[in-house]
Structure formats: structure tokens, C-alpha cells
């Protein structure tokens, strides 16, 4: 395999949320790219060359560069995080691409994720969904003994599967309805599966679903592209569980009475 490749590179450039934006052809800056570079390192190289040519570098989000923070997120040829399954953009390597391949690089597309600049989008809608979920009732004070709360191994494993969600937003980017169902289902599901999450279970489910609605994400229509795009391979089974939890909560939940507390 060639150690370096040349690419036909088109990158989405957009000055700000209200700028219409357009693709720019950067093929001249995408030659001689090491196949060992990650996709973000490739963009770093292109940016260095852009700066040398007195042009604005491409803005993109990144942080850990080891697939755990969820900051990176770029659509490459129509696929969130690029063509490799279960891989974040930062963990995607240039050897995935052929010499001379044409790449169209653009941001997540969703009304609820407005573009801040170029490839960087505002994902604070996710933070607000989490925030709407509120607290869990847990005993404060000294650290509890490990295993003080018995949790069957199966449930612990399942909750962990949901908790691997890094909140990158690839599910929204992949969904034809720009629905955040998979994200929301993972976040609701991992707490609803554990004993620690039971006290506020119904309230949390109702509140997070309501916030998802208010943020303007679409509804799930069972295309399942989210599951395929998810770098953590979170299953759409979680969406079915969330649906069940929501339907149950909507039919049985009674708000806490707003009475003053005792004298203590």
C-alpha cells in the first residue's frame, strides 16, 4: 500500500450560523497525505497548508482524539464519522481511503444543531436534554461500599452498553428525520436500568422526551441508520425500551406534591 495518497478534497466552509456556506475545493492542499494519519491529523495538515497560503484554516471540533469524548464529528461522503463502522472521526485512518478518492466533508446537518462555523456545530441541545433529566436520588456522604447495592450482572452490563454513548450526535446526523432518539434512549436507558435510577424514573423519562421535542429534533420512524452510524454501536433496542418507559410513565406518573418540608 502506498505510504502517501492524494485526495480530491471538498470541504464545507461557512462563516457563521447565518452564512449560507458552500463547498471549497482543497484538492491542491490534500496531496501526499500519510496513510498512517488519522482523519483529524489530515485536516491539521490541510490547515497548516491553508495558513501558509494565507487562508483561513478549517474550523472543526475535537478534543481527546482517542474516541471517548464525542467532540469530533464530521460527515464524510454522506456518512457520519466516515465509512468505517464503530469508529469516531478521530480514530479513522487515511488508509481507509483510496489514492485519488473524492471526499466531500461537511458538518452534521440538523436544525437543532446549528452550524457555528465550517464543520463545527452547536450540540448544546444534548446538554439541555441531559439537564432536563435532573438528578438521581443518591445517598451523599462517605463513598458507599462497593456492592452495597446488589445489581445483577446482566443489568450492569446492559446499563454499561447504554452508558458508552459519548454524545457525539452521529445518530442525529445519520437520521433522515434528524431525531435524537438513540442518544436520548441511551441516556434514559442507562439510568432506568439501574436500581439507583428508579426513584426519578418516570419523571426523568417524561422530562427528557419533552426537552427533545422542544429542541426541534424529529421523531423516530424506524430507519435504524442511527445504530449503523453510532461509533459505540448502541442498539435501537434502547429506543423500544424508551418508548415503553415513556408510554408507561405518561399513563401512571403523578407529580410530587409541592408541600413545604418538615422542620427537620
Amino acid at each position: 500500500m502506498a505510504e502517501t495518497i492524494d485526495l480530491k478534497l471538498h470541504v464545507w466552509r461557512q462563516k457563521g450560523p447565518s452564512d449560507p456556506g458552500k463547498f471549497e475545493d482543497y484538492s491542491q492542499y490534500a496531496k501526499g497525505i500519510s496513510t498512517h494519519a488519522s482523519f483529524l491529523e489530515f485536516l491539521d495538515v490541510v490547515n497548516e497548508r491553508l495558513v501558509l497560503a494565507n487562508q483561513e484554516p478549517i474550523v472543526f471540533d475535537h478534543d481527546c482524539r482517542e474516541g471517548i469524548c464525542g467532540m469530533c464529528g464530521i460527515v464524510i461522503n454522506g456518512e457520519p464519522h466516515g465509512p468505517q463502522k464503530a469508529t469516531t472521526t478521530c480514530q479513522l485512518h487515511m488508509r481507509t481511503f483510496r489514492n485519488g478518492e473524492e471526499l466531500w466533508v461537511e458538518p452534521w446537518r440538523a436544525a437543532a444543531f446549528p452550524v457555528i462555523r465550517d464543520l463545527s456545530v452547536d450540540r448544546s441541545a444534548f446538554d439541555r436534554i441531559i439537564q432536563a433529566g435532573g438528578y438521581i436520588t443518591a445517598r451523599a456522604g462517605a463513598a458507599p461500599d462497593a456492592n452495597a447495592i446488589p445489581i445483577p450482572k446482566r443489568l450492569a452490563d446492559e446499563a454499561m452498553d447504554a452508558a458508552t454513548c459519548i454524545g457525539c450526535g452521529a445518530c442525529v446526523a445519520a437520521c433522515p428525520n434528524a431525531s435524537a432518539s438513540l442518544f436520548m434512549a441511551a441516556k434514559i436507558g442507562h439510568l432506568n436500568t439501574l436500581p439507583q435510577g428508579q426513584a426519578e424514573r418516570d419523571k426523568r423519562t417524561l422530562a427528557m422526551v419533552a426537552q427533545h421535542e422542544r429542541e426541534g429534533f424529529g421523531a423516530c420512524s424506524n430507519h435504524y441508520l442511527c445504530e449503523a452510524a453510532c461509533p459505540k454501536e448502541i442498539s435501537v433496542q434502547w429506543i423500544a425500551r424508551m418508548n415503553r418507559d415513556l408510554l408507561k410513565a405518561a399513563m401512571t406518573y403523578k407529580p410530587e406534591p409541592q408541600r413545604a418540608g418538615g422542620d427537620g
Partner: peptide
């Protein structure tokens, strides 16, 4: 609502998921 949530399409339309032809066609 879905149309309002996703106003822009991607330049390249990729299949993303490996699904059987019947399933893919039916859902679309």
C-alpha cells in the same frame, strides 16, 4: 416535523446501514 428538523441533505447519499433490499426499500 421531520422535514423541519432536517432541512439540508448531504452532498453524497450513502447507504450508512447494511440492510436487505426489502427492508431498505420498505422503510424508504
Amino acid at each position: 416535523k421531520a422535514r423541519a428538523a432536517r432541512t439540508t441533505r448531504y452532498k453524497v447519499s450513502a447507504p450508512i446501514a447494511e440492510q436487505g433490499i426489502l427492508q431498505r426499500y420498505a422503510r424508504k
